[in-house]
């Protein structure tokens, strides 16, 4: 059974994950929530994601365009900008380095599993 996730852990990496998913393909807000759920973040709410999208767009890391929808009003689709793409790789490298360090430290503190 999965451990309950600390929201603060997710908060730090969410912008990176959003940039990564948008690099894969453009999406609108609610679709991104669904894709993040499918990716394993099933406790993420739209209310957590929308402020992050707003900040990324304000910082020029993602751009948006309106696409007509068959049901309801036009939807806002997001795509990373060049700045966002650079930011993604820079953050991803930093994350990988941090993950290695954290794993190393945790390995020293966590009891070994018996086979």
């Amino acid at each position: 059974m999965d451990e309950p996730r600390d929201p603060q852990l997710l908060k730090g990496v969410l912008p990176m994950l959003v940039l990564a998913l948008l690099t894969e393909r453009e999406s609108y807000g609610y679709e991104l929530v669904t894709r993040l759920h499918e990716g394993g973040l099933d406790d993420l709410s739209a209310g957590t994601l929308y402020p992050v999208l707003n900040r990324l767009e304000r910082d020029g890391q993602i751009s948006s365009r309106l696409v007509a929808s068959s049901a309801g009003p036009a939807r806002k689709y997001y795509l990373p900008t060049d700045t966002g793409a650079e930011q993604l790789w820079s953050t991803a490298r930093a994350w990988q380095q941090l993950a290695v360090t954290v794993d190393h430290l945790l390995a020293r503190a966590t009891p070994k599993e018996t086979s």
């Binding site: 609610y30 009003p73 036009a74 939807r75 806002k76």
Partner: peptide
């Protein structure tokens, strides 16, 4: 305004 549009569009799905 953006949230109103997003809510209306999402409501059409869920």
């Amino acid at each position: 305004r953006e949230l109103r549009t997003e809510l209306t569009a999402t409501a059409a799905e869920v």
